[in-house]
Design a protein around this nucleic acid. Sequence first.
DNA 1: TACGAATGTATAATATATTGTACGAAGCGA
DNA 2: TCGCTTCGTACAATATATTATACATTCGTA
Lengths: 184, 184
Amino acid sequence: MDAIHKKVGKNLQAVRKSRGLSLDQTAELTGVSKAMIGQIERGDSNPTISVLWKIVNGLKISFTSLIEESKTEVTVVETERLEAFEEEDGAYRAFPMFPYDQRKGFEIYAVRMDPGCSHESEPHNEDVEEYIVVTGGSLEVEVDGETYAIGAGNAVRFPADQPHAYRNNTDQVTSYITLIHYPS
Amino acid sequence: MDAIHKKVGKNLQAVRKSRGLSLDQTAELTGVSKAMIGQIERGDSNPTISVLWKIVNGLKISFTSLIEESKTEVTVVETERLEAFEEEDGAYRAFPMFPYDQRKGFEIYAVRMDPGCSHESEPHNEDVEEYIVVTGGSLEVEVDGETYAIGAGNAVRFPADQPHAYRNNTDQVTSYITLIHYPS
DNA sequence: TACGAATGTATAATATATTGTACGAAGCGA
DNA sequence: TCGCTTCGTACAATATATTATACATTCGTA
């Protein structure tokens, strides 16, 4: 699922078969060897971009159609099964629930912060926005010198192209969901 | 210009420099070696799709942003300098003025047909359309058993997912522009 | 049944993508 | 100027992408 070249292989084979083309015919149309096309379809090879370019142009299809997920599938994620990025000696734990997807332009983490934990984040690039929904405990967010207290069930959004910090001043674990949106 | 990997290199370098990143930092972010990133930027290497995928995800950019032309440039095409696809012993000559561009989804040819020339075209795939503007002489187009006579200055459009034929029954050279549109 | 054509796969040879390391150039304080 | 760092490039070693060829299977046909 995550291996891009396998996705490309599936998509390519889908296009080829939907047109009733053989490997030989496809090789003729694209200028890429039959063996290579077969390997790409099976996921046995990691095509260079030049080869993909030839295929795309020979078949008169878009580049995107090869790298796109054929359909958006149901994806169930269990936080406990994810491997967290830990910071602050494990007191700050970020679980990548939906990793960055360049077609969507955002990523979603579930974060847990132990009592007393404080975490500073490097500024992101311009026009990057962060959305936070606190799901448990209470969170202090500091942006541009201002501090905002967000209780469970509440949310905040802020431009993340500047240094910002998260603090859990309570005596219980605070959890929140954060969505980071990158400009297209 | 036409070499895809050089375009990718330019775009990648543009992104990296606009963020003030060094090769080392980019390597750190993407998990791709510094040497490789340098080679890609210079066009010395033809990256595999997996490597591009890592870069795209590490930098939080879209795949498309790497393969797109940074800006649409002015492109002047002189038909006489183009190499024609010849058929019917050279009596049918097709000049690729604007070759297939998957982002646009179409391609444009200039065609010259000698007097008496007749040319049959294989059916294209479903939902492919052909637009023809006759610029000189007169053209007979046969689609689905029907024949249409198109004089200079006139045009025709038809679905090209069936056999179709072109004929020049006049005693002079007929020329026309044809645009072939492929579905997305 | 046998044959020929067409399919997708396996194999070996070659080209090249990818990496780790080392190098020279350019900035920057002391 | 000297060191120190950071930058991008050059190099050699290795992994692997790509090709041409040969192979096994299937299918239609005589």
